[in-house]
């Protein structure tokens, strides 16, 4: 399967994440609002999407993308 799990983070979760990483959200990798999967989960510009990837090395890895 090619598409990993995408979830939109709630406001609190997003704040918590940015605090724990110590970065601004502009520093995250991006995903376009027009991306087919972003549209599918209803992500809006400014949201943070949590992606649970299946990694060949780590088994499971979590990545975040900012919707632009």
């Amino acid at each position: 399967m090619l598409v990993p799990k995408h979830e939109v983070l709630s406001k609190e979760e997003a704040e918590e994440l940015l605090r724990s990483l110590g970065i601004k959200k502009e520093q995250l990798p991006k995903i376009k609002a027009t991306d087919p999967i972003a549209k599918e989960i209803g992500a809006k510009v400014g949201d943070i999407v949590k992606i649970t990837r299946e990694s060949p090395t780590a088994g499971k890895s979590i990545a975040y993308r900012l919707v632009i």
């Binding site: 090619l2 598409v3 990993p4 995408h6 995903i31 376009k32 991306d35 087919p36 999967i37 990837r53």
Partner: peptide, 21 residues
């Protein structure tokens, strides 16, 4: 479970994360 070897097509249809994979 259906795939293509055209990466750009995957990007257009399934999005950026699928393209990465």
């Amino acid at each position: 479970r259906t795939t293509t070897n055209n990466v750009y097509e995957i990007y257009e249809v399934l999005g950026i994360e699928a393209a990465r994979n």
